[in-house]
Design a protein around this nucleic acid. Structure first.
Lengths: 355, 355
DNA sequence: CGGTTTTTCGTTATCGTTTACGAAAACCGC
DNA sequence: GCGGTTTTCGTAAACGATAACGAAAAACCG
């Protein structure tokens, strides 16, 4: 139990702690609370001499301002909310790390919520987090609609979308060009000599659709005819983990006649499951089927068959989002929203190396 | 910019938002602020009729209490601080997830800090987080000393250590029995017929030492003589990533005469690096060298050679820590500290399957 | 029906800080 | 020395909620 006093030490088995407030320092030095506050925030209207005196005492007493109280009056909490579908997921983990490292510079802290890919949970979490009066939200929404995003906007809290944007919903955004992602992967498979390229697509969202679009663009550019049954769906992240979804999708692909000789997967986890299933079925990768994933998760290079993957620049997404937040919070009334679209990068490994 | 008013709508390109306060609801219904507060917190001293009336209005206006203000007066912030060396690390990621999911039930939120395995940064982060007046800290410290932990205790904030405890520093703790971890891995290698078992040890901390102790215990139990040069160090997490550290350690191991036929690694990432290096050197795993890691990271089963690993129950650690926090915060003055020691579990895969 | 208890609700103070404003002190030029 | 700045500091009022206390209203009881 923190006690407000200047005694510090052990009495019996109880330890008394001091919780120093502005008031205490002011009283000790015989100045007013406001003067101490001014010294701490480096305000101009204070004499150098008194400032030095105060800062010395502040340091000696190990004073730390109560940010809760400050927040109440200034309306700034120095807290940023991060809402992602899954904290364990390497992609979002990297984003969190990029964010956190950059935000640290300005002493912002991250309040995280892992929505477990459950739309209702996400909405609920946003609702609760709003009560904490965060300075800004960073969201990779797992919802089909924009309900949770709108709640944030309605509350007047700045918002940065990462990874997924929502057509029709104006907002700041940081992510990669997903059409380019699809093109990069597919062009590569074509260049490797694949003739029949399948795609395990992601959910029906802006991202999933954009990747399919890129996939089609590349095929068209090389006059390969698009076959609808070569694009197989594998459900949502909320259905089951990516790996089993990848396995199931591979079942379908194995049944296709003629069998595809190239495969572009929505992400590395799905690719992993698909590859495992294909290997079990006796296929050799890449000889019988070249595979490219997406996300370049850090373990993708260590797999049974090291996986080619399109890097989504997750760390950079986090860092750029952090920069955007800082800009947003420094000069608040910038009505129009900004977008940062990063270029994806293909990393080639054994799973698609045919030449 | 949130405006305090009851107008809501679009004027030109500006949207006005309402920030509803207790005061507003009270004014609308002609009751006092305290009455509304009581209704919201389900206090007994309020008539059912007025309560219903208030709750209806609260719902209709979409009121959310300002937790910052509440926190200031109650001294409870509903925020839990999580300090880990690395957010991306699957082990800590799982802990974060376990914590977050459990804490959600009581509407606690997680403020995270990834210290990047930098002791100074950790200290700094703790210092700053203290200013936010969190209700409790969960820490996996990367420091050699207990300085950051002591700062938390001195501030009178409840503390739960996870993964690593510090002998001599009394505190709540949730983790696995690390001596058992070492025993489990080593006993298994012995049972598989390994005669010369090496160990890539972790940093010189309670954990690293305990695992070595378990390793020695198992050897002794089977009358295998302990050779000091079979225990190779690989530096600290802050030096470089586990994988390259594992590779470097394997260099040393490959130079040992006679060459070990079994290897127990401090964690899966190190094991991964070590295995990669061994494979490059032409060794076959497990035939020439059986390998067991620790942590059972979710990708360990998907590696080139699926890796046997001692599961550290990371998710459960998070959940148990969450439970402990709730207990701590409900009945505060429990002076003595509690420990939860979980049993590790060995998961056998190809990397060590000899029989 | 008076007195006591119980229920219900309002008043006031408080949490630790910042903002707005104004007063005193110091400085300045003439 | 006297008006007018400028510097330095203090007072008072927030911020949005809860805690402690007490008063009015209602209910109960003999």
């Amino acid at each position: 139990m923190p006690t407000k006093c200047f005694i510090r030490g052990v009495i019996g088995s109880y330890t008394l702690f001091m919780v120093v407030r502005l008031k205490d320092i002011a009283a000790e030095l015989g100045v007013s609370v406001v003067t101490v506050s001014r010294a701490l925030r480096n305000r101009p209207d204070i004499a150098e001499e008194t400032k030095a005196k105060i800062l010395e005492r502040v340091k000696r007493l190990n004073y730390r301002p109560n940010l809760t109280a400050r927040s109440l009056v200034t309306g700034r909490s120095s807290l940023i909310g991060l809402v992602v579908p899954d904290l364990i997921h390497p992609f979002f983990g990297e984003i969190a790390k990029g964010l956190s490292n950059k935000l640290r510079e300005k002493e912002y802290y991250l309040l995280v919520s892992s929505s477990e890919s459950d739309p209702d949970l996400e909405q609920n979490e946003v609702e609760h987090m709003l009560a904490h009066h965060l300075d800004c939200f960073v969201v990779a929404s797992c919802r089909k609609d924009t309900d949770s995003l709108r709640r944030i906007s309605e509350a007047g809290v700045p918002l940065v979308l990462v990874d997924r944007s929502f057509p029709g919903f104006r907002s700041n955004f940081v992510g990669v060009d997903d059409v380019k992602v699809g093109e990069l992967a597919t062009e590569h498979l074509i260049a490797q000599g694949c003739k029949r390229i399948a795609h395990i697509r992601g959910p029906v969202t802006s991202i999933g659709d954009a990747r399919v679009e890129g996939y089609r663009n590349a095929l068209q550019r090389h006059r390969i005819k698009f076959a609808a049954n070569y694009v197989v769906a594998c459900g949502e992240a909320s259905d089951s983990d990516g790996e089993t979804r990848g396995r199931r999708a591979m079942e379908e692909i194995l049944a296709l006649k003629p069998r595809p000789d190239g495969l572009f997967c929505f992400n590395d986890t799905i690719a992993l499951g698909a590859m495992e299933r294909a290997l079990e079925a006796g296929l050799r990768i890449p000889q019988n089927m070249a595979v490219v994933g997406c996300g370049n998760f850090h373990y993708s290079s260590k797999l049974r068959v090291p996986l080619s993957s399109v890097d989504q620049k997750s760390r950079e997404i986090g860092e750029r989002a952090a920069k955007m937040i800082m800009a947003l919070l420094e000069k608040p009334p910038s009505a129009r929203s900004r977008s940062v679209i990063l270029e994806p990068e293909l990393i080639v490994r054994e799973s698609s190396k045919l030449k």
